[in-house]
């Protein structure tokens, strides 16, 4: 654990990766706010990564443009996919997103091999272009700062959206879509917008990852990654964005510790997940807040209907 605290290559490397995972977890959780478990989240990250890498290497686009283009392309795919599939019920949406993730993986590794690199993927993805004299070398401190800044912006934005008026509507839709429709809320529109935002963030995360990691293959973006992020979100606690942050930290720590025991990693992961689901389903955050005071004031429920007998004025 010590290397994580002392400055140095290892710490920077790990913290950079934490930022990537945080962005993925927060954006997946954002999509889950409207009741959709997006199993293709890693796939959308992959689309952003490949788009950014290909544009940088083939037409020498600056990273600062391909970064956003990666997000936009993912968002567009998300728009098309979401419009078609978001009206499906929970289990069906989950299955179809699973199918999409596989389609993305297969497409990225089997088609356009010249550009996309087939199974071996793309290597030597360029770093972000130097700006204002600031250079971004691989595993450099500047790259780390970049990741932190982008991650912070993403997390803050998501937090603000969720806790604003827009977020109130999202919360209502997840509580009862039918009630919302009956008062005129176009729930599909809201679901699609949320989904597109989530995909956009997954896309820019991919673009960032591509440059920071310097190489990408389709197998980086399988449903296993989606599942890992999903576990982070649930384990940390779905109720709050801090849950996703905590969840990533916990799982990455477990991963690091388990790596020393090599083979045992998945079993620790699996058993931890089962334990959380069975004993603390609201996740770590939920567990902690259970002891905090409840938010809602409770008045006595012996009030009769009619109360003060006031009529409509």
């Amino acid at each position: 654990m010590l290397p994580l605290i002392t400055p140095g290559y290892y710490a920077i490397h790990t913290y950079t990766w934490l930022c990537i995972y945080w962005m993925l977890a927060a954006s997946l959780r954002f999509i889950m706010l409207i009741g959709a478990v997006n199993f293709a989240h890693a796939g959308f990250m992959g689309i952003g990564a490949y788009a950014s890498a290909v544009l940088m290497m083939n037409i020498h686009c600056s990273f600062w443009i391909t970064f956003f283009l990666g997000g936009i392309i993912s968002a567009l795919l998300g728009l098309g996919f979401g419009l078609i599939t978001l009206r499906l019920r929970g289990a069906y949406f989950f299955l179809v997103s699973f199918a999409l993730c596989e389609i993305i993986r297969i497409s990225l590794s089997s088609y356009w091999i010249g550009t996309l690199g087939g199974v071996t993927g793309i290597s030597n993805v360029p770093q972000p272009n130097a700006v204002l004299g600031v250079e971004f070398g691989p595993d450099s401190l500047n790259s780390f700062y970049l990741a932190v800044i982008i991650c912070s912006l993403v997390l803050i934005s998501l937090y603000v959206i969720e806790n604003g008026y827009y977020g109130k509507i999202l919360k209502s839709i997840s509580e009862s879509e039918e009630l919302c429709q009956s008062v005129g809320i176009n729930t599909i529109k809201y679901k699609v917008v949320v989904f597109v935002i989530g995909c956009f963030i997954a896309g820019i995360t991919g673009s960032l990852y591509a440059s920071l990691n310097e190489r990408i293959t389709a197998s980086d973006f399988t449903y296993s990654l989606s599942m890992f992020i999903l576990v982070c979100v649930v384990l940390g606690g779905q109720e709050h964005i801090w849950g996703s942050i905590i969840g990533v930290i916990v799982l990455v720590i477990i991963g690091e510790e388990a790596r020393s025991t090599a083979l045992f990693e998945p079993i620790i992961w699996g058993v931890s997940l089962m334990a959380v689901m069975l004993f603390a389903p609201r996740g770590i955050f939920g567990f902690v807040t259970r002891f905090a005071s409840l938010a809602m004031k409770r008045s006595s429920s012996s009030l009769k209907i009619g109360g003060d007998k006031q009529w409509l004025s």
């Binding site: 509507i169 209502s172 009862s176 009630l179 008062v183 809320i185």
Partner: peptide
């Protein structure tokens, strides 16, 4: 059918759907 985990006031506010209709950017 109610928004069970939200306050009664919030439930009624949702009923006035027109207040939330602008796009995200203008929220």
């Amino acid at each position: 059918i109610l928004l069970n985990n939200m306050s009664v006031l919030d439930n009624i506010i949702i009923g006035s759907h027109t207040w939330g209709e602008k796009s995200l950017a203008l929220s």
